[in-house]
Computed example of a mutant assay.
Amino acid sequence: MMRYLLDTNIISNFTKPAPSESLIAWMAEQSDEDLFIASLTVAEIRRGVLEKPAGKRRNQLDEWFSGPQGPQSLFAGRILSFDDKAGLVWAELMAEGKVKGRPRSGLDTIIAAIAAANDCIVVTDNERDFAGIEIINPIRGGN
């Protein structure tokens, strides 16, 4: 059984007028209980909604976020937190990046650390910021 932590850009893809067909196909092949999101993803999505200018699109996103198809409802019981175990992994990843001369994004590294601490593979369309982390990118067709 594989466990997957969906990056924020994967969840956001589903709010687009035309979500990625390859992502939809990949998701359809997965079992819900193997799919997780990070508490940081909930925060990033909410921030994105709140930063939209007032209007129809923001209202739609706000309704989605708070409704039964929003991340907190869909992933109830499968939202992973940044705890002490993930914090120690984060410290290692950040230090490793600095030592190698390739500083890492703090937020993306939190997602990577939560995934590692919970034995998950990161599912993302952001391959560059997750270099050296076990990922799959179903949007580009990578499994």
Rank of each mutant, 00 (worst) to 15 (best):
Asp129Cys: 00
Ala116Tyr: 12
Pro103Ala: 15
Ile114Ser: 01
Ile136Gly: 07
Cys120Leu: 04
Gly132Met: 00
Ala116Val: 08
Ala115Pro: 15
Thr124Trp: 14
Asp129Val: 05
Leu107Met: 12
Val99Arg: 15
Glu92Gln: 10
Val123Thr: 06
Asn118Cys: 13
Thr124Glu: 04
Ala115Ser: 13
Asn126Met: 02
Ala113Thr: 10
Asp129Glu: 08
Asp129Tyr: 05
Ala117Met: 06
Ala117Pro: 03
Ile114Leu: 03
Asp125Val: 03
Phe130Pro: 04
Arg104Asp: 08
Ile135Ser: 00
Glu127His: 02
Ala115Lys: 13
Ala115Phe: 14
Pro138Lys: 12
Gly97Asn: 11
Arg140Val: 07
Asp119Met: 10
Val122Asn: 05
Cys120Ser: 01
Val99Thr: 15
Lys98Cys: 05
Pro103Ile: 10
Met94Glu: 01
Leu93Met: 12
Asn137Lys: 14
Glu127Pro: 02
Glu127Met: 11
Ile133Ser: 05
Gly101Ser: 11
Phe130Gly: 11
Ala113Phe: 08
Val122Pro: 14
Ala131His: 13
Ala95Ser: 15
Pro138Met: 08
Ile133Trp: 05
Arg140Cys: 02
Asp119Leu: 03
Ala112Gly: 04
Ala116Leu: 15
Lys100Val: 08
Cys120Thr: 06
Lys100Phe: 09
Asp129Trp: 03
Glu96Phe: 09
Ala131Glu: 12
Thr124Lys: 03
Asp119Glu: 15
Asp125Ser: 14
Ile135Val: 13
Arg102Tyr: 15
Lys98Tyr: 13
Arg104His: 02
Lys100Trp: 07
Thr124Leu: 08
Asp108Arg: 05
Asn126Leu: 00
Ile114Gly: 07
Ile121Pro: 12
Asn118Leu: 05
Cys120Ala: 02
Lys100Asn: 12
Ile121Asn: 10
Ile110Asp: 09
Ala95Asn: 14
Gly97Tyr: 06
Arg102Glu: 13
Ile121Ser: 12
Glu134Leu: 06
Arg104Pro: 09
Arg140His: 04
Gly101Trp: 05
Arg128Cys: 01
Glu127Val: 09
Met94Asn: 01
Asn137Tyr: 03
Phe130Thr: 14
Thr124Gly: 05
Asp119Arg: 10
Thr124Pro: 13
Phe130Trp: 10
Cys120Gly: 01
Val122Arg: 08
Met94Asp: 06
Gly101His: 14
Ile133Val: 10
Met94Tyr: 03
Ile121Thr: 15
Glu134Cys: 04
Leu93Ser: 11
Arg102Cys: 12
Arg102Gln: 11
Phe130Leu: 13
Glu134Asn: 06
Asp125Thr: 07
Ala131Tyr: 12
Gly101Lys: 08
Gly101Ile: 13
Lys98Asp: 08
Thr109Ser: 14
Gly101Tyr: 09
Glu127Ile: 06
Pro103Tyr: 06
Thr109His: 11
Val123Pro: 09
Ala95Gly: 10
Asp119Tyr: 15
Gly106Pro: 04
Cys120Tyr: 04
Gly106His: 09
Met94Leu: 08
Asp108Cys: 11
Asp129Gln: 07
Phe130Ser: 05
Arg140Trp: 12
Ile136Asn: 03
Arg104Cys: 03
Arg102Ser: 14
